[in-house]
Computed example of a mutant assay.
Amino acid sequence: MKIAMACDHAGTKLKNEIKEYLISQGHEVVDFGTKDENSCDLSDFVYPASLAVAKGECERGIFVDGVGYGSALIANKINGVYAAVCQDTFCAKLARWHTDSNVLCLGAKIIGSMIAMEIVKDWMATEALTDEKYRRRVKKVEEINNKHCLPVK
């Protein structure tokens, strides 16, 4: 699977650990940066990574910042991106099962490396539920998205 990754200065170390793991599992990673821990603006990296997911250039995205919410706020502005902040494995599974999220957002200041890796493993391995109840709910969210968000070109 091709994964878009992005972070700010607070998430650089954790992003690099996750990236290394994903590559070791045979995934292709497109790293949108940042590359170091110098202060930077998160949107400069999350925005292009989100566009790559929305355009289908990457199948999923994993974004890391200080608490995760900044990445999610930016990513969820893009039509076709469904970003979830997850701070434990249960939430990661639910984010895939119930909402078919295509972007995982993590907070490097909130969770440690070991928990983050377990979250990534579960989120990557979990498929969306396909029974009628969950597909109907996901479709309603997609309809809201398409009604209010401009298509990505």
Rank of each mutant, 00 (worst) to 15 (best):
residue 40 C to R: 04
residue 29 V to G: 01
residue 102 N to A: 10
residue 38 N to R: 09
residue 128 A to T: 10
residue 114 M to R: 12
residue 92 A to H: 11
residue 115 I to R: 09
residue 13 K to L: 00
residue 15 K to D: 03
residue 132 E to I: 10
residue 126 T to Y: 01
residue 33 G to T: 01
residue 70 G to R: 06
residue 37 E to M: 08
residue 134 Y to D: 11
residue 136 R to Y: 08
residue 87 Q to G: 14
residue 124 M to C: 08
residue 149 C to G: 01
residue 107 G to L: 05
residue 86 C to A: 13
residue 80 G to D: 04
residue 128 A to S: 11
residue 55 K to L: 14
residue 66 G to M: 09
residue 56 G to C: 06
residue 119 I to G: 00
residue 2 K to Y: 03
residue 105 C to P: 07
residue 87 Q to Y: 14
residue 60 R to A: 12
residue 128 A to L: 05
residue 54 A to S: 09
residue 20 E to W: 00
residue 1 M to L: 14
residue 149 C to Q: 11
residue 122 D to E: 15
residue 121 K to S: 10
residue 82 Y to A: 10
residue 32 F to Y: 12
residue 144 I to A: 07
residue 49 A to L: 06
residue 34 T to C: 13
residue 6 A to C: 11
residue 91 C to D: 10
residue 64 V to M: 03
residue 132 E to H: 10
residue 17 E to I: 09
residue 148 H to T: 10
residue 110 I to S: 11
residue 24 S to W: 03
residue 60 R to Q: 13
residue 130 T to C: 09
residue 68 G to C: 08
residue 54 A to R: 00
residue 23 I to Q: 07
residue 109 K to V: 10
residue 93 K to N: 12
residue 9 H to I: 05
residue 148 H to N: 07
residue 151 P to V: 01
residue 137 R to Y: 14
residue 8 D to H: 06
residue 120 V to A: 05
residue 81 V to K: 07
